[in-house]
C-alpha cells in the first residue's frame, strides 16, 4: 500500500511485514514457556521440596523463563525490536535501575528477618513452626 507520511518524526520507514507468521510463532513460544513454568511451579508443590538449593534452582529457572516471555512480548508484540537502536536504548537503559532496586530491597527484607530471628527468639519460635515436618506443641495452654 502507499505511504501517507504518517508523521514528521519518522525519517526511515520500515515496511510492515506481509504475513502474520511471526506473531503466531511468538504465540506458541509464549504458550509453551507458560506451560513449562506451570509444570515447574506444580513440581515445587508436588515434591514439597525443603528450602534449599534444588528449590532455588527451580525458582530461578521459572524467573529466567518469565524474563524470556517479557522479551518476546516487548520485542515482537510491542515491536520494540523493529525500532532503531536509539529508541530501544531510551527505554531499556532506565529499566536497568531495577537491578539495583531488586537486589537492595530484597537484601533489606532478608537482613530484617535475620536480625529479628537473632534478637527475638520467641518470634523465631512462634513463626518457624510451619517449617518443621511435625507440628510441635509450643504453648499447651501457656497463657489464659
Amino acid at each position: 500500500m502507499e505511504h501517507t507520511n504518517v508523521s514528521t518524526e519518522i525519517t526511515i520507514h520500515h515496511e510492515p511485514s506481509a504475513s502474520t507468521k511471526r506473531i503466531w510463532k511468538v504465540f506458541w513460544i509464549l504458550l509453551i514457556i507458560t506451560m513449562v513454568e506451570l509444570g515447574l511451579g506444580l513440581s515445587l508443590y508436588a515434591l514439597s521440596l525443603p528450602e534449599g538449593l534444588r528449590m532455588h534452582l527451580i525458582k530461578g529457572t521459572i524467573i529466567i523463563l518469565s524474563l524470556a516471555k517479557a522479551y518476546y512480548i516487548v520485542s515482537v508484540f510491542m515491536h520494540l525490536g523493529d525500532e532503531i537502536r536509539n529508541m530501544i536504548m531510551t527505554i531499556v537503559v532506565p529499566l536497568m535501575l531495577f537491578i539495583w532496586f531488586i537486589l537492595a530491597f530484597l537484601g533489606d527484607g532478608s537482613s530484617y528477618k535475620n536480625l529479628r530471628n537473632k534478637y527475638d527468639r520467641s518470634y523465631k519460635e512462634r513463626t518457624e513452626i510451619g517449617t518443621h515436618k511435625k507440628d510441635t506443641v509450643v504453648h499447651p495452654g501457656g497463657k489464659d
Binding site: 530491597f105 530484597l106 527484607g109 532478608s110 528477618k113 513463626t127 517449617t131
Partner: peptide, 10 residues
C-alpha cells in the same frame, strides 16, 4: 511485596 516476603519466616 518481595521485601516483606523475604522478611518473613513463613
Amino acid at each position: 511485596y518481595g521485601t516483606i516476603r523475604f522478611s518473613q519466616n513463613y
